[in-house]
């Protein structure tokens, strides 16, 4: 599942996409996030599944442009901590 968390406003599109098919439920992204906007929960979009997946906390979803701002890399070699921590490469940012 492609889970998109975020919003669009006059300045652009801000979405964090988590591909739960790639996710191996390791939880490293949750630890890597300095702002603690991610949390591991039992898959809320598939009640029949027992897998834990990371989600963006709902109260944080509409603030990610600002919350994630300090993590945005200054050059192309570096990556956001959540993206870097994810070995299966399940996390992407749209901006």
């Amino acid at each position: 599942m492609q889970a998109n968390y975020g919003y669009r406003d006059g300045s652009g599109e801000y979405y964090i996409t988590i591909d739960t098919d790639k996710c191996d439920s390791c939880g490293k992204c949750v630890e890597a996030c300095p702002s603690k906007i991610l949390v591991m929960v039992s898959d809320p979009f598939d009640p029949m599944s027992d897998a834990d997946i990371p989600i963006v906390i709902e109260a944080e979803r509409k603030k990610i442009k600002y919350t994630c701002g300090p993590c945005k890399p200054v050059d192309k070699e570096r990556e956001e901590p959540c993206i870097k921590a994810c070995e299966p490469r399940a996390i992407t940012h749209s901006w």
């Binding site: 599942m1 492609q2 998109n4 975020g6 919003y7 669009r8 406003d9 979009f45 509409k62």
Partner: peptide, 17 residues
């Protein structure tokens, strides 16, 4: 919301602010 033939969610996007 995008779903498969069983109604399982394959992708979703919430609205804006």
């Amino acid at each position: 919301i995008r779903t498969d033939e069983k109604g399982k969610v394959t992708a979703f996007l919430m609205n804006d602010k």
